[in-house]
Simulated assay, not measured.
Amino acid sequence: MMEVCIASQNRHKVREFEEMLHGQLLVRSLPDGLPEAPEDGTTFAENALQKARFYAALVQMPVLADDSGLCVASLHGEPGVLSARYAGVHGDDEANNAKLLRRLAEHAEDRSAEFVCALALVSAAGQTLCSAIGTMSGEIALEPRGAHGFGYDPLFILPHLGRTFAELSPPEKQAHSHRKAALDALLAKLPVLDWGDME
Rank of each mutant, 00 (worst) to 15 (best):
residue 30 L to C: 08
residue 17 F to D: 07
residue 4 V to W: 11
residue 73 A to V: 13
residue 80 G to V: 03
residue 61 M to G: 12
residue 57 A to N: 05
residue 127 Q to N: 15
residue 187 L to A: 04
residue 199 E to T: 05
residue 150 F to I: 04
residue 136 M to L: 13
residue 80 G to Q: 07
residue 95 A to C: 08
residue 161 L to M: 15
residue 78 E to T: 09
residue 120 A to K: 09
residue 24 Q to D: 04
residue 8 S to K: 08
residue 195 W to M: 11
residue 51 K to A: 12
residue 179 R to S: 07
residue 167 E to N: 03
residue 88 G to I: 00
residue 191 P to C: 12
residue 110 D to F: 07
residue 25 L to Q: 14
residue 26 L to I: 14
residue 176 H to P: 14
residue 78 E to L: 06
residue 147 A to Q: 09
residue 196 G to A: 06
residue 62 P to H: 00
residue 100 L to G: 00
residue 84 A to K: 12
residue 166 A to K: 12
residue 33 G to P: 10
residue 66 D to Q: 06
residue 175 A to V: 04
residue 79 P to Y: 01
residue 1 M to Q: 04
residue 15 R to H: 08
residue 28 R to W: 05
residue 40 D to A: 01
residue 132 A to N: 03
residue 180 K to E: 08
residue 3 E to T: 11
residue 68 S to E: 12
residue 65 A to S: 06
residue 111 R to G: 12
residue 60 Q to W: 08
residue 10 N to I: 05
residue 150 F to W: 02
residue 123 S to R: 03
residue 128 T to C: 10
residue 113 A to Y: 01
residue 162 G to H: 03
residue 17 F to V: 02
residue 78 E to D: 14
residue 138 G to F: 01
residue 9 Q to L: 09
residue 179 R to T: 15
residue 109 E to Y: 00
residue 187 L to G: 12
residue 53 R to N: 10
residue 198 M to W: 09
residue 136 M to F: 01
residue 108 A to D: 11
residue 170 P to G: 12
residue 13 K to F: 06
residue 17 F to P: 03
residue 152 Y to K: 00
residue 6 I to K: 08
residue 148 H to K: 15
residue 170 P to C: 15
residue 173 K to V: 14
residue 100 L to N: 06
residue 172 E to G: 11
residue 71 C to H: 12
residue 91 G to R: 00
residue 5 C to M: 09
residue 163 R to F: 00
residue 189 K to H: 05
residue 63 V to H: 09
residue 165 F to R: 02
residue 150 F to R: 04
residue 42 T to V: 05
residue 63 V to C: 11
residue 189 K to G: 01
residue 152 Y to E: 02
residue 104 L to Q: 03
residue 187 L to H: 01
residue 81 V to H: 06
residue 107 H to W: 14
residue 193 L to F: 02
residue 121 L to M: 14
residue 160 H to C: 07
residue 169 S to M: 01
residue 131 S to E: 07
residue 154 P to E: 05
residue 18 E to S: 06
residue 48 A to Q: 08
residue 56 A to I: 02
residue 196 G to P: 05
residue 97 N to M: 05
residue 151 G to K: 00
residue 26 L to P: 12
residue 105 A to R: 13
residue 155 L to V: 08
residue 15 R to S: 15
residue 193 L to Q: 00
residue 22 H to E: 03
residue 62 P to L: 00
residue 56 A to S: 13
residue 99 K to S: 04
residue 36 E to D: 15
residue 61 M to C: 10
residue 137 S to I: 10
residue 51 K to M: 00
residue 22 H to I: 04
residue 102 R to V: 00
residue 40 D to W: 11
residue 142 L to C: 09
residue 131 S to H: 13
residue 94 E to D: 11
residue 24 Q to P: 11
residue 177 S to K: 11
residue 15 R to N: 07
residue 46 E to A: 05
residue 164 T to R: 04
residue 194 D to T: 08
residue 129 L to A: 15
residue 125 A to P: 13
residue 106 E to W: 11
residue 13 K to I: 04
residue 126 G to V: 01
residue 3 E to I: 13
residue 127 Q to R: 09
residue 38 P to L: 05
residue 108 A to N: 04
residue 71 C to P: 10
residue 138 G to M: 06
residue 67 D to I: 14
residue 128 T to R: 15
residue 192 V to C: 14
residue 108 A to H: 06
residue 168 L to M: 14
residue 179 R to E: 15
residue 8 S to V: 11
residue 8 S to M: 12
residue 135 T to Q: 13
residue 31 P to M: 11
residue 21 L to N: 09
residue 27 V to M: 13
residue 191 P to R: 14
residue 76 H to W: 07
residue 56 A to R: 02
